[in-house]
């Protein structure tokens, strides 16, 4: 079925069956590959995107449920104030290793900072719990979020 999507401020017409995860429409149809596939069952966070500003797991978000919503992916994060601050902090602290989980980490970090501009270590641990990093860059993710909070405060 034809569905119109609003992604990163642009409208797209896609042809997808109901029940298709948003993840695969973004990756395979729109060929935007910053959003990653890690588990497909909402337990790793690699596929995190924003739906009307809220982080969601796109592998468990179905295409028929997002019509009309504002979808934002990692590719548009540099254009947002919080996204740019998080990306800057990530580079300053060299958070990444293999990097495969990091789009999702950043999408969740932006979600956290949007609702809590000065998160404590505990706030970060509980909000970011669902974003797995097999390279275990967690220490730097925590520091990166706190650094981004500083950048935003300045």
């Amino acid at each position: 079925m034809a569905i119109s999507l609003k992604l990163n401020g642009k409208s797209h017409e896609v042809d997808a069956e109901p029940g298709t995860p948003l993840l695969w429409v973004i990756r395979d149809e729109l060929k935007m590959t910053g959003t990653k596939f890690g588990c497909g069952v909402a337990s790793c966070g690699a596929c995190t995107v924003h739906l009307d500003g809220e982080p969601v797991r796109s592998c468990q978000t179905y295409i028929e449920d997002v019509e009309g919503a504002e979808i934002t992916t990692i590719e548009a994060m540099a254009d947002t104030k919080i996204g740019a601050a998080v990306q800057q902090a990530w580079v300053e602290l060299d958070v990444v290793q293999c990097g495969y989980c990091q789009s999702g980490q950043i999408m969740s970090a932006v979600g956290l900072l949007s609702e809590n501009p000065k998160p404590s270590a505990e706030d970060i641990d509980s909000y970011m719990y669902g974003n797995a990093c097999r390279c275990a860059t967690y220490q730097r993710i925590r520091a990166g979020i706190q650094r981004a909070a500083e950048i935003l405060e300045a």
């Binding site: 590959t33 910053g34 590719e75 994060m77 580079v91 990444v96 990097g99 950043i106």
Partner: peptide, 9 residues
């Protein structure tokens, strides 16, 4: 490789 791994490219 920090930048490209943080911006999805």
């Amino acid at each position: 490789d920090s930048e490209i791994k943080g911006n999805g490219t």
